[in-house]
């Protein structure tokens, strides 16, 4: 950050003023770097401590005082994996997330393409509905759906859960893919049409290869939305609990090892996710909603 001294109007700055100016600049620079470093530590250090806990023996996890250096003992992780219900919950989380990914990308991509490439009556209304979904606490909709799912036989199924998760992820998928397709010049498609492609051929020969990294990113995003979601998962699953539902419902009952190891497993996709999507981070929230 730059700070101006108040003597800039003088025609000939004295050496004193110049020295003053550079030293203020130095102070600001030092402050800048140290606060950036502090904020980096603020984000990373708690994660580091979770890793320390998850990679310690059971004695250490439950003991006190704690060391700040990991033992690299797999006892806690092994205990977690063998804990009753964990493996099933892990599998359920993966399945629900995969379903969510498929539904939201499968439905969202065509809609995103329509928003990016066509002008049609009702386009603004459609965009409004998409944006509106973000102005509501979507997980709450699991409450009525729990009742409806019982009626249609989808209660306590991963498919039913992933439908709710997809309704969370779909609006994002539409907005992300729309901005993705907007970024691909329409002339590329037109060139393909003129060179002999029909619309579909032009899409998969030209648009698809160019959009693929972005589509992957939004698929991963849908995956993480489902993977992380707690409320709907806890409300909608009983025997087929996902990992988040499992952890939240056995909070008081389960030992500390399960919590910390579970916490580590939960955040692993997050790290991967941000690495994959970092280029698309900004189109992700459909921020061009002006």
């Amino acid at each position: 950050m730059k700070m101006d001294t108040n003597n800039q109007r003088e025609s000939e700055p004295t050496p004193d003023v110049v020295a003053n100016y550079t030293s203020t600049k130095k102070v600001w620079r030092w402050l800048f770097i140290s606060s950036a470093a502090f904020l980096i530590a603020w984000v990373l250090f708690p994660i580091y401590l979770l890793v320390v806990s998850a990679l310690s023996s059971a004695d250490v996890v439950n003991g006190w005082p704690k060391s700040f250096i990991p033992e690299f003992d797999l006892e806690t992780m092994t205990f977690f994996m063998n804990y009753y219900g964990v493996l099933a919950a892990l599998k359920n989380s993966l399945v629900a997330a995969a379903f969510t990914m498929i539904i939201s990308i499968g439905l969202g991509t065509p809609a995103g393409y329509a928003l990016a490439r066509f002008d049609f009556w009702g386009k603004e209304a459609f965009r409004m509905i998409i944006l509106l979904t973000r102005a509501f606490p979507m997980p709450l909709l699991a409450l009525p759906l729990a009742v409806i799912f019982i009626q249609v036989g989808l209660d306590d199924t991963l498919f039913g859960l992933s439908l709710v998760h997809a309704s969370l992820a779909l609006p994002f998928a539409v907005l992300i893919t729309a901005s993705l397709f907007l970024g691909i010049p329409v002339e590329l498609e037109e060139a393909a049409w003129v060179l002999g492609c029909n619309r579909w051929q032009a899409f998969y020969k030209v648009v698809m290869p160019l959009a693929l990294p972005g589509l992957t990113a939004s698929a991963v995003f849908a995956f993480v939305i489902s993977w992380n979601e707690v409320f709907a998962a806890a409300v909608l699953t009983i025997n087929n609990q996902t990992l988040t539902a499992f952890l939240v419902q056995s909070l008081s009952a389960s030992p500390a090892e399960v919590k910390f190891a579970g916490g580590l497993i939960l955040i692993l996709p997050a790290l991967l996710f941000l690495y994959v999507v970092r280029k698309y981070l900004f189109s992700m929230w459909g921020i061009s909603n002006r």
């Binding site: 010049p185 002339e187 037109e190 060139a191 060179l195």
Partner: peptide, 15 residues
Amino acid sequence: PPRDRNVAMVFQNYA
């Protein structure tokens, strides 16, 4: 449609 006209086109931004 364009594909059946046996034309070719050069675009302003080359495409």
